[in-house]
Amino acid sequence: MQVIFESRDTDAAQMREPSIEKVRFALRRLAALVQRAKVQFSDVNGPRGGVDKRCQVEITTDAVGTVVIASLASDWRTALDRSLGRAARVLKRSLQRRNKPSRNRSLALAVDP
């Protein structure tokens, strides 16, 4: 799994290594299916402060395509944790839906007289 980190903010750049480790840990069970995970940090309001730290996680797989999740928080770690948690849940649910056997109603109707 390739992990890409992007940020223009100098404070977020310090989160590079912890972010890569968290991504690998959060997606460890799905690592065989995930080709690439991209983490982007941005500061929405700039130096004004507030709940403005944005983390976007983009996960690319062959099985279900691309999953993109973004979250806002007051600090970088919280934004990353929220994004990763939600992205892992969405990816897991998408894989379960894809692997769920479909009922073939037309076959059942053809067999019954």
Results as ranks from 00 to 15, higher is better:
L95T: 05
L80N: 09
V51D: 15
V90G: 06
L80S: 06
L27H: 01
V39K: 00
D52G: 15
A31G: 07
Q96I: 11
P101E: 01
R103D: 02
S83A: 15
L27Q: 03
A37V: 09
S71L: 03
Q2L: 11
K92C: 01
P47Y: 09
V90R: 15
D9T: 12
A73P: 09
S74P: 00
A26H: 07
S71Y: 02
D9A: 14
P101K: 02
A31H: 09
N45K: 11
A70H: 10
S71I: 03
P113M: 07
W76V: 08
V68P: 04
Q2P: 03
D81F: 08
A32H: 07
V23Y: 01
R86S: 14
T10K: 15
E21P: 02
L30P: 01
I4C: 02
I69V: 15
A110S: 13
K53D: 09
F25D: 15
R97S: 10
A108F: 03
V51T: 14
I20L: 02
M1H: 06
A31Q: 12
D81E: 14
S19V: 07
S71Q: 10
L95I: 13
L107C: 02
G50F: 13
F25S: 14
R29S: 10
S19R: 05
G65N: 01
L72F: 11
P101Q: 02
R48H: 10
R103P: 03
A87W: 06
T10G: 10
P113Y: 08
V57C: 05
D75V: 06
V34A: 04
Q2I: 12
R28M: 01
R98K: 14
E6V: 09
S94M: 12
A70Y: 08
G49N: 11
E6Y: 08
R97K: 14
A110V: 06
R103T: 04
A26W: 02
V90K: 12
P47N: 07
R29D: 12
L84G: 12
C55P: 04
I4M: 07
W76K: 10
Q56V: 13
D11E: 13
L80K: 06
E21F: 01
M1I: 00
A73W: 06
K53H: 09
N104V: 08
L107G: 01
Q2K: 15
D11M: 11
Q14Y: 10
E6Q: 14
S42P: 08
S83K: 03
Q56I: 06
E58R: 09
K100T: 15
L84E: 09
R48M: 07
P113G: 15
R89V: 10
D52Y: 11
A87C: 10
V51R: 14
M15P: 00
G46P: 08
A73F: 12
P18R: 13
Q96P: 04
L84M: 11
I4G: 01
A88E: 12
L95Q: 11
V44M: 15
R8Q: 11
A79C: 12
E21A: 15
S83Q: 04
R29M: 03
A110D: 09
C55V: 07
R28Y: 00
R29V: 02
T60Y: 02
M15F: 05
D52K: 10
V64Q: 00
P18K: 14
I4W: 00
A26Y: 02
Q56S: 09
L27A: 03
S94E: 13
F41H: 07
